[in-house]
Design a binder for these strands. Sequence first.
DNA 1: TTGTAGGCGTTATCAG
DNA 2: CTGATAACGCCTACAA
Lengths: 354, 354
Amino acid sequence: MTTNGTVPAAKPAGAQSGTASITNVAALANVSTATVSRVLSGKRAKDDDIARRVRAAAEELNYSVNYAASALRSDVTNTIGLIIPSATDPLSAQLLDELEPLTDVDSQQLLLGIGATQEKQEERIESLVARNVDGLIIVTAPGAELAATLERQQIPIVQVGGRQRSFRTSMVSIDDNAAMEMSVRHLAESGVRSVAYLANRDMSFESAELFAMFHTQVRSYSLHTDRAWNQFGEKTVQRGFHCAMRLFGDALDRSGRDDLYRLRPEALICCDDTVAFGAMVALDALGLAVPGDVRIIGYGDSPLALTTMPQLTSVRPPVRQTVAEALRLIAAGPASPAHITLPPQLVARGSTGD
Amino acid sequence: MTTNGTVPAAKPAGAQSGTASITNVAALANVSTATVSRVLSGKRAKDDDIARRVRAAAEELNYSVNYAASALRSDVTNTIGLIIPSATDPLSAQLLDELEPLTDVDSQQLLLGIGATQEKQEERIESLVARNVDGLIIVTAPGAELAATLERQQIPIVQVGGRQRSFRTSMVSIDDNAAMEMSVRHLAESGVRSVAYLANRDMSFESAELFAMFHTQVRSYSLHTDRAWNQFGEKTVQRGFHCAMRLFGDALDRSGRDDLYRLRPEALICCDDTVAFGAMVALDALGLAVPGDVRIIGYGDSPLALTTMPQLTSVRPPVRQTVAEALRLIAAGPASPAHITLPPQLVARGSTGD
DNA sequence: TTGTAGGCGTTATCAG
DNA sequence: CTGATAACGCCTACAA
């Protein structure tokens, strides 16, 4: 036996406190370092006296594994990389808030990379891969095309949102076409005859596709719309205000006409809650009632949606499920990529009826 | 010489590609691993043929250091931990967006922890310290008291915002008292006679202090205010709307009185741009003009401030300087803590004049 | 300035 | 199941 028969209160060798290593724990528990490693990492079936002794010793010495050493030996770093275009992007922020607690229960850590352009995102991918992250979640920047960079990597990668262009990596996306279908149907069922769409201009193919989907759905529900009503633009309050002013600014003059619904929309679908909010402010200023004169649907189900009067009907992205699926796909490893599409949820509130 | 006279195209030993190690580079450059380490880490003065050969070899093999091994040997992980209450907190998000590019140029990585309560924040601190981060930046959650936890750590820690309660750690804070002074002075100089303050209720000592500071400044500029006008509340659009409705709801009845400025404030200072925005919407609905009847100042200089009409005067927190100082203090090490207070900037726009 | 050699803390391997 | 041992890749004290 190399360990002494008595069990001395083994002190850490290092000068600074708080640096107990596996050797100290092993000495205190009177077992080998290998056993300590096995017990603490759960690779040992029995929960006998030895296991208890090891845990007690680790506890007493306030031991925690050295992740660097562990990573060096086992090629597992217990880290997950997340790349987002910007922390001020609402969806990215929501994902962060949902993701962090989940990684924590796995005693994993989140390495963050921010890149708003394709080039920056590629840089961040390279640098996180160089850190040996166990997996990578990427919220693609609008218009970024990362397929080539992603294909090259050996680790599980999950792309969130954006368009799938690689069959070697996984993707979890939000079914915005379904959201559009829900929105138009919801409006049609509430008796609306015409509708306008304030779309998002972010240069992406998805936006264009969604714009087409809007028209498809409008036709399928026999609603009216007008080329001049539907425009691409920013996701800002101001933009919503201006658009509503343009659409309804001279509406009062024409009241009484029975084809009024063809002159101005009876409902607005907005690409973002902020746009919807701006539109509601404008309508209020014009003396038009929501939902009486105009019904409104936003997107994102941001906190803003609860603060308008009436409260805003909005499309809620499935953030929690997205995060859960992403982590599941990473745990599954790089060999089993999958493409998952999750439906959002239409949260009906006062702005589309009562 | 142990290396062969010829220079073979040394291949990585591992089966998978992309795993070249320092040994491979050394072999290809025909030098020792020690020299490679010194050249690539910049601990070697000359830039001679050897240095070039090493760099060329590293390039050719697509070599990048194994951070785990490097950390194990040298106790430097090239990682910085950041703890924030929530990614949806505007200040935290702005800090993230500013911080990430700066850590990147240092080839450092950001480890993120999210915790909205004192308990969660302490958990995250422990877990990031266990990861051997080189430094820790903490955006304190409202009301959290981390002094005891922070004192215990051996690494450089910078607290952002909040109240300093430890002389062993650094702090970078925003001088909100100065912001209040600027705001009141700005209003006084524009001829306002009375002012109300829509304060933030977050249970923190700072909010209470700021509330007192408001009254101090109001007195010092001989302005009028009223106990009933100034209340604590949420940072939401709705709250601003309600407060303004309450303050100005029956204002029209009293117009014409020459002591009107004592019955309702001629200016509003808001704890947040969203509150200011809500107030502007309410004022618009009430037929009161901004800045003609009421002048308004927000806080945060969020994108929202540019989308109101007129644009919103707001206090801009010194995010960039905060991040720069935090990184500087971390680089300086744990032995030289400092307390730094940075002044915000009052961005004057239409809501307080022209 | 360069190379040699040892060790950082952990886990995988292998023999008992 | 346990313990002894080697190896992960890198950095650095030391010797040349």
